[in-house]
Amino acid sequence: MQIFVKTLTGKTITLEVEPSDTIENVKAKIQDKEGIPPDQQRLIFNGKQLEDGRTLSDYNIQKDSTLHLVLR
């Protein structure tokens, strides 16, 4: 499925993911596309910070959902 990740600069990254993917996996995909190390990434969905060990389906993230990427 496709999800979107919006950065603070207003750029939107499109990712191909599975609901069973962990947040860690998603961060690795963002690193592949953008070169941002996962330990600098914080992903936010519906105002909640997403934890590495959880999956997209844990957070009820579905296709065409938009996550927000904050760098630390």
Rank of each mutant, 00 (worst) to 15 (best):
Q2M: 07
I3G: 00
F4R: 02
F4A: 10
F4V: 06
V5L: 06
K6H: 14
K6L: 15
K6Q: 15
L8E: 08
L8P: 08
L8G: 03
T9W: 02
G10I: 14
G10T: 09
G10S: 12
T12D: 13
T12P: 14
T12R: 02
I13L: 07
L15E: 01
E16Y: 05
E16H: 07
V17P: 06
V17S: 02
V17Q: 04
E18V: 11
E18Q: 13
P19F: 03
P19K: 08
S20N: 10
S20Q: 12
S20G: 12
S20H: 13
S20T: 12
D21W: 12
D21P: 00
D21Y: 14
T22S: 15
T22D: 14
I23M: 02
I23A: 03
I23E: 03
E24K: 02
E24V: 01
N25Q: 15
N25K: 11
K27M: 10
K27S: 13
A28S: 15
A28E: 11
K29D: 04
K29S: 11
K29H: 13
K29W: 14
K29Q: 04
I30Q: 00
I30G: 01
Q31N: 10
Q31D: 11
Q31R: 06
D32Y: 14
D32M: 04
G35P: 11
G35F: 09
G35A: 15
G35V: 13
G35K: 09
G35T: 14
I36H: 02
P37M: 13
P37W: 14
P37S: 09
P38W: 12
P38R: 14
P38N: 15
Q40E: 06
Q40Y: 02
R42Q: 15
R42K: 04
L43M: 05
L43K: 00
I44L: 10
N46E: 13
N46K: 04
G47N: 14
G47M: 06
G47R: 15
K48H: 05
Q49I: 12
Q49D: 02
Q49M: 04
L50R: 00
L50H: 00
E51S: 09
D52Y: 14
D52M: 05
D52T: 11
D52E: 02
R54I: 13
T55A: 10
T55I: 12
T55F: 12
L56Q: 00
D58H: 11
D58R: 02
D58F: 12
D58E: 11
D58W: 02
Y59S: 13
Y59M: 10
Y59Q: 15
N60Y: 11
N60S: 13
N60T: 01
I61L: 15
I61Y: 01
Q62M: 09
Q62L: 11
K63R: 10
K63W: 08
K63I: 07
D64A: 12
S65N: 12
S65H: 13
S65I: 12
S65Y: 07
S65G: 09
T66A: 13
T66I: 14
L67K: 01
L67N: 01
L67A: 08
L67S: 02
H68P: 02
H68E: 15
L69V: 10
L69G: 01
V70G: 05
V70M: 11
V70A: 14
V70Q: 15
L71A: 14
R72I: 06
